[in-house]
Each structure stands twice: as C-alpha cells, then as structure tokens.
C-alpha cells in the first residue's frame, strides 16, 4: 500500500489491517471487503443522511418508553386538539386528547415491524421464484412467470384490499397482504439477473465441477441477485410504508387505538382544516422515513451493484 506515512513500521493500525490487499484469513478478507464497501458508502453524503435517519428511527423505537412524554393510549378529553407547542404536548394532542409525539414515537415500532416483515417475506419469495424460474427455464419458467404476471396485473393496493377483506383487518394480515402483492417485481428482477448470470463462464466452470442446480442457485446465483434486490427493497420501502399507511387509513390495517401512522392520519383527516397538525405530523413522519429509505437505497446501489463495482 502506498499512502501510509503515519505508521512507518511495527504493528499495522486497524485501518491498514482493514485496507490490506493481502488478507491473511477468511475472516480478515471478509472484514476488509466490508470495510471498503463502508468507505465508499460513507463518501455518499445523501445515503449517510438516510442511514442516520433510519438508525435514529430504530433507536427511537427501542427506547420508546423512555422517550415518550406520555402514555400513547391515555385519553385526556379536557385537553383535546391542543395546538403545536402546548405546555407538555410539543406536537399537540389529537381528538381524544392523546399526545401526538408519544403516539408517533410508539408508532415507529409498528412501522418498523411492518417494514421489517415485508422486507423479509417479499424479496425472499421473489428471489426463490425468480432464480428457480430463470435457472430452470422451459415449462417451469413459463408457469412461474405466468403466476407472477397474474399478481402483477392488479394494482397493489386493490389486491391488498381484497386480501385484507378476505383475511380480516389487522396488522399481521396487512403485512401478509402487502407481502403477497410486493413479491412479483422481485421475482422479475431475480429472473432477469439469473438469465444473464446463468450463461456466464463462472457458472459453466462450476457445472464442470459437477455442482447440481441447487448448489448453483443458492451459492452462486443468489449472492449476485441479492445486492440488486436489497437496493430495490430499500427503494420500495417508501411504497410499502405508504401502502401500510393506506390500509391503516382505510381502517383495514392497524386498528384503533394503535398509534399506527396511517391510522393517525385517517383520524386527523376529519379536522384537517381547523386542526391541521393532527394529520400533518404523522404525515411528516411517513415522509421522512420514506425519504430516508430512498436515499439509503440510492447509496446502496452504488456500493452493491456488481456492474459498477469493477471500476
């Protein structure tokens, strides 16, 4: 390495150890490549802002009982619809006199719960369907892709509505419904990636070692698909939060009195002209988190996309 003037000799600093071109063990190599990825991610200011917002969101959700000034469920009808900056109620209160700030803080848990579950279910289902379909080809491909097309043919919210209507309202069912409507694009992406990877020399090479399709898909194709899926997930997150909020707004997602942000907007809607902050504050929260995911997704695309990583 060239530019390391600070420590002339002796034990390398942690930074040098991480930036080495000649790793000495499997663990070392993994740390080193993760660190380089982090360095290039860190140089993207907007993505860092996104990441910081999300880290803050997670911390807030974890520390909700400590941070929230009030119990989010306690009603106080004597102080309902207080404006912003009221004594003890920084963001005001809603129509039942509940503290909006506390409800937002607790609501972050619900948002994270929804986002986390959907982010686990939809891309993994899509990855499975897409890679199997792309690698197997032929009749398997045709059948799986037609099923995908059927799901793609319906608008997401309408399909989710139908599912929730069938399954019954509630947050778990909302997650399920959103996941069911969110996987087809991932399947499409994974399939497209698989089709290009399938015929590459390194797949041919491992086939010549006698590797079966299961090993090839899991160990060789998945690692290359996952990065583009992660990027896509972070970019989709905003949409997922909005869909969950939409279901909440329509009364099909989280049920009152749960402080889900979409449901809060729905409640506040009735007095939006006279008491605008009741609906606006949760709206701002949704906006901020969606934006953070979008920024993060853009940054991750630069770091993870193998097509650009070579340069």
């Amino acid at each position: 390495m060239t530019a390391t003037p600070d420590t002339p000799s002796g034990a390398p600093t942690l930074r040098q150890w991480l930036l080495t071109e000649t790793p000495t063990s499997r663990r070392h190599a993994r740390f080193a490549s993760a660190y380089k990825g982090w360095l290039s991610f860190r140089s993207n200011t907007m993505a860092m802002i996104g990441l910081l917002i999300l880290v803050a969101l997670v911390l807030i959700a974890l520390a909700a009982p400590l941070l929230a000034p009030h119990d989010p469920y306690v009603q106080n009808l004597s102080s309902r619809l207080l404006p912003l900056g009221s004594e003890g109620y920084t963001l005001g209160t809603d129509s039942l006199g509940r503290d909006i700030l506390s409800r937002l803080i607790y609501g972050s848990r619900i948002t994270l719960y929804i986002v986390g579950l959907v982010a686990l279910i939809a891309p993994i289902a899509g990855l499975l369907v897409g890679t199997v379909s792309g690698y197997a080809g032929g009749i398997v491909d045709t059948v799986l892709m037609r099923i995908t097309d059927i799901f793609l043919a319906f608008p997401r919210l309408v399909l989710a509505l139908a599912f929730v209507a069938a399954l019954g309202a509630g947050i778990e069912n909302a997650v399920l419904a959103i996941s069911l409507t969110a996987w087809p694009p991932y399947a499409r992406i994974a399939r497209a990636e698989t089709l290009t990877i399938r015929n590459s020399d390194f797949i041919s090479a491992v086939r010549l070692q006698g590797a079966g399709p299961f090993r090839i898909i899991v160990k060789h194709i998945w690692p290359l698909c996952i990065s583009s899926l992660i990027v896509r997930v972070t970019l989709d997150m905003a949409g997922i939060i909005l869909a969950a909020a939409g279901l909440g707004f329509l009364g099909l997602g989280a049920q009152p009195p749960s402080p889900e942000w979409g449901a809060m907007i729905s409640e506040g809607r009735r007095f939006i002209l006279d008491y605008w902050w009741v609906a606006t504050m949760p709206g701002l929260a949704i906006f901020t988190v969606s934006l953070a995911f979008n920024l993060l997704g853009d940054g991750l695309r630069d770091v993870l996309d193998p097509k650009d990583a070579g340069s």
Binding site: R26, A29, A205, V206, Q209
Partner: peptide, 29 residues
C-alpha cells in the same frame, strides 16, 4: 476432464474469494 475458459475476467465468480473457489471445487470432488 476439466476446462480452462478464455476470459479470466468472466470465469471467476465476482463475489467468491480464491479460497472459496478452490475450496468449493475440492469439496465437490
């Protein structure tokens, strides 16, 4: 029977270290 491919830039998995490539091959054999 084994084969060496033309383009060394395309015949190695971009996310697998040398160790992983050789280790997996040996495991498969």
């Amino acid at each position: 029977v084994q084969m060496v491919f033309q383009d060394p830039y395309a015949s190695l998995h971009p996310r697998h270290s040398v160790d992983a490539v050789l280790g997996e091959t040996l495991h498969l054999h």
